[in-house]
Design a protein around this nucleic acid. Structure first.
Length: 811
RNA sequence: GCGAGAGUGGCGGAACUGGCAGACGCGCGAGACUUAGGAUCUCGUGGGCAACCGUGGGGGUUCAAGUCCCCCCUCUCGCACCA
């Protein structure tokens, strides 16, 4: 047997050609419209590229190649998010420097990407670990510091004893470290924090500007978690001061029957009565000992202790007992709540547990059975001051809320308030393999290193073990640590923390625009031309982390005039996860991991690319099928035989004669379908149309060039190597990648005959094959004949005719 | 629990604004060419002997529902005491 074509030879040949001719190098040619097509750059892990990476990369590659053929100037770059924990952990284990591991892994990734035929402009390649790159990461940090957006705070952090480092909330999954699955406890520490909360509103509002998946938009909205309500002061009984609470339901203020402080709340000591002191103390200690995981495990069973103190409800002067309970979090709102058990599920459960009163103030439910929390129905009751000076009775909640808030403001007892779930971003890591902070410490104060002295190089060492005290391995390097304050000349000590991995990935899309600029982060004119990113494809695991942090930095850069767009990424798509053949997540332990190198060896890069796209919708999770790869391989071989004979020459079936109308229609329908499908990223259906075309043309021995050549152009973005080879065999000069994209004639995309289904009462009974110019009367006449058996001579009650689509008799 | 998305042949999946359900591919079956084929080509392939029945289940709107409305079930992802 013979394979249709030798993918090894052809792919190697054309990859070499593209490299030698710099086919995909891009310049800042402002005469052309631009298209910035970006992949989420990978962390170069030791495992190499997997088939999941390839799905996203192939998609952007197809779009890039298509857009080039459409006449766009396409920026399609690739780089490496190369700082990070795995290389460092490997170094701790083996002593191999992370820089070495990283460089080797990058070599593997790059080799694999080239094998796939991805059309990157490799001259713009960058790595976040390159001092010429992280110089600007440090520069951005200085700008954040200057603007008060980077500060040091004593904050309870997630400390992982096994990793010897602090973790961000996002690096913790189910109370364990995302890397390694180790226990995580809370511990107060001095930390660098970025004030992302200052941008909470803009980060929320500007989501309206982008074309992103709804799930990702929702996740970001929830993460930011804006809620509007009121802050209300409850005066303490028997001493000065007040408890300030945040509530989204000021309409239920008359229903408050007790108050709760977070166990860590600073007022707890002051209000606790002598009699309750021991109980309160015990409870607080118990809470402090619990890790986050334990707090989660103990779920739903509400616990708490009465403090012995009381506060006064400002609307009705009622004395409310003050409790502490760990269901109130110090980290949200004011760390204190007014409890309205009738209209809040948690308060209801707590009140039941401790026999506290439940008072209905909104009708509509049975508050003895369950909390009634609806806000879109019900009427306010039992809500008037005893002296009659103020009442919201009879209102609906949406009217009562502003009325109460207004009244509180007038009394000086409260104010409208907005709260966010979003916390400031814990930005420091106690690790070696990251960007050093451009900061020195003098007399306990942080001083920035002048911009001109950047980059602050990561010092060499062979000891990558964390110090274990909470400081990074950099704390062991005495020579590097001791320095002088560039301002005053006083002795100074360097900051020993490094930045988290997110830092480098926050702004890399800007550097691709001008990757070698040593004077600026990015040239302004170039930035204006290329930004924003038009299409960004990557995994949904970054839906809130990378994609929120990037947007934050981008907005800061916007404010200081470095970038010209409010948002970095206009259209975002997440490729779905590729499962193993057994429909399970790919994993080494399951032994179902598909290695792209093996697939390419066996079937070729074009077949693998094509299969990745043919599997199903880009965003969907779907299983790998090596049989499926064989299927698309057969398709490619059919395409090959369409054009090439057994001797490897242009087939005699390819003729110069004009194409029949049917063949022209087939071609134009295919151009239309493939074009529209690429634009909408529906690659699977684009490929199926090319299969239809191929199946049809295989049947004929007269394959006109005027039909075959445009088809090869359509195939080129998907299977570029074989398309280049076929283009050459057709006698055309290279490169197929630089040909204009075929256009279609709308008149030729419709066929001249159409099949009209005939229905009786909506059931298909017959079909009519008619010309396009057929009249309704004619269709109806023919249909009556066709469907006579079903009509039984009776006159239909009604006849529905949809022009050239369908005819339905209602009898 | 809350938020988002999704349930279609043996399998992956098609079906634009309601208008022939199952395109295309895999698998399977039959045939052709063959010493042979796990190559290639052709044909067939939702279920049922049939009338008919079929897009997770149950209602509804409509001449017509995979598509729209209501109720329910299952799965995936995210959040998880956020006041």
């Amino acid at each position: 047997m013979s394979k249709g074509y030798d993918h090894r030879a052809i792919e190697a040949k054309w990859q070499q050609y593209w490299e030698q001719h710099a086919t995909f190098r891009v310049t800042d040619d402002v005469s052309k419209p631009k298209f910035y097509c970006l992949d989420m750059f990978p962390y170069p892990s030791g495992a190499g590229l997997h088939v999941g990476h390839l799905e996203g990369y192939t998609a952007t590659d197809i779009v890039s190649r298509y857009k080039r053929m459409k006449g766009f100037n396409v920026l399609h770059p690739m780089g490496w998010d190369a700082f990070g924990l795995p290389a460092e952990q490997y170094a701790v284990k083996t002593g191999v420097h992370p820089a070495k591991t990283t460089a080797e892994n990058i070599t593997t990734f790059k080799r694999q990407m080239k094998r796939v035929g991805l059309s990157y402009d490799w001259e713009r390649e960058l790595s976040t670990t390159d001092p010429g790159y992280y110089r600007w990461t440090q520069w951005i940090f200085l700008k954040l510091f200057e603007r008060g957006l980077a500060y040091v705070a004593e904050v309870p952090v997630n400390w992982c004893p096994q990793l010897g480092t602090v973790l961000a909330n996002e690096e913790i999954v189910d109370g364990k470290s995302e890397v390694g699955g180790f226990d995580v406890i809370r511990k107060p520490m001095r930390q660098w924090v970025l004030k992302i909360t200052a941008y909470a509103d803009r980060l929320l509002e500007d989501l309206k500007l982008v074309d992103w998946p709804t799930s990702t938009l929702e996740m970001q909205k929830n993460w930011i978690g804006r809620s509007i309500g009121a802050e209300v002061d409850f005066a303490l009984v028997g001493r000065a001061g007040a408890i300030r609470v945040f509530t989204t339901r000021p309409d239920t203020l008359f229903g408050a029957t007790y108050m709760v402080l977070a166990p860590e709340h600073p007022l707890v000591d002051g209000i606790t009565s002598e009699a309750q002191k021991a109980a309160v103390q015990a409870y607080r200690e118990g809470t402090a000992r619990k890790s986050d995981l334990q707090r989660q495990e103990l779920e739903k069973e509400k616990t708490g202790v009465f403090t012995g103190g009381y506060a006064v409800n400002p609307v009705n002067q009622e004395r409310l007992p003050i409790w502490i309970a760990d269901y109130v979090l110090m980290s949200y709102g004011t760390g204190a709540i007014m409890a309205v058990p009738a209209h809040d599920e948690r308060d209801w459960a707590f009140a039941r547990q401790y026999q506290l009163p439940i008072r209905e103030v909104i009708t509509g439910g049975n508050v003895q059975e369950a909390a009634f929390t609806d806000t879109d129905r019900g009427t306010v009751v039992n809500s008037a001051a005893s002296d009659g000076s103020f009442s919201i009775n009879g209102l609906i909640p949406s009217e009562a809320i502003p009325k109460v808030t207004e009244w509180l403001a007038k009394q000086g007892k409260g104010t409208r308030a907005v709260n966010y779930k979003l916390r400031d971003w814990l930005f420091a890591r106690q690790r070696y393999w990251g960007e050093p902070f451009p900061i020195v410490w003098v007399d306990g104060e942080a001083r920035p290193i002048p911009e001109q002295q950047l980059p602050l190089m990561l010092p060499e060492t062979s000891n990558f073990k964390p110090s274990g005290t909470g400081e990074s391995p950099l704390a062991n390097l005495d020579q590097w640590l001791a320095t002088v304050d560039p301002g005053s000349g006083k002795p100074a000590r360097r900051e020993t923390n490094t930045m988290p991995q997110w830092a480098g990935s926050c702004w890399y899309y800007l550097r691709f625009i001008d990757s070698k600029n040593s004077a600026q982060l990015v040239d302004q004119a170039k930035e204006c031309y290329w930004m924003p990113v038009d299409l960004y494809i990557g995994g949904s695991e970054h839906a809130v982390l990378h994609l929120l942090y990037s947007r934050f930095w981008h907005k800061v850069l916007f404010d200081i005039g470095v970038v010209s767009t409010p948002e970095p990424f206009m259209k975002l798509v997440h490729q779905g996860i590729v499962l193993g053949e057994d429909n399970q997540k790919m994993s080494k332990s399951r032994g179902n991991v598909v290695n792209p190198d093996e697939m390419i060896d066996q079937f070729g890069a074009d077949a693998v690319r094509l299969y990745e796209m043919f599997m199903g919708p880009l965003e969907a999770m779907k299983p790998w099928s090596t049989r499926g790869v064989e299927g698309v391989t057969r398709f490619l071989e059919r395409v090959w035989r369409l054009i090439v004979d057994d001797q490897g020459h242009l087939s005699s079936a390819v003729v110069s004669a004009g194409a029949s109308l049917d063949h022209q229609r087939l071609l134009h329908q295919t151009i239309k379908k493939v074009t529209e499908d690429i634009e909408a990223l529906r690659f699977n259906t684009a490929i199926s149309q090319m299969m239809i075309f191929t199946n049809e043309m295989t049947k004929t021995q007269q394959r006109p060039r005027s039909v075959i050549e445009p088809f090869v152009l359509l195939l080129a973005p998907f299977a570029p190597h074989v398309a280049e080879e076929l283009w050459g065999l057709l006698g055309q000069p290279p490169s197929v990648s630089q040909q204009p994209w075929p256009t279609f004639d709308p008149a030729l995309t419709v066929s001249e005959r159409v099949t009209i289904p005939i229905q009786i009462n909506g059931k298909l009974r017959a079909k009519l094959d008619v010309g396009l110019d057929v009249s309704r009367e004619e269709v109806e006449r023919l249909a009556r004949v066709e469907a006579a058996e079903w009509l039984q001579g009776k006159e239909p009650r009604k006849v529905i005719y949809v022009d050239k689509k369908l005819l339905n008799f209602v009898v």
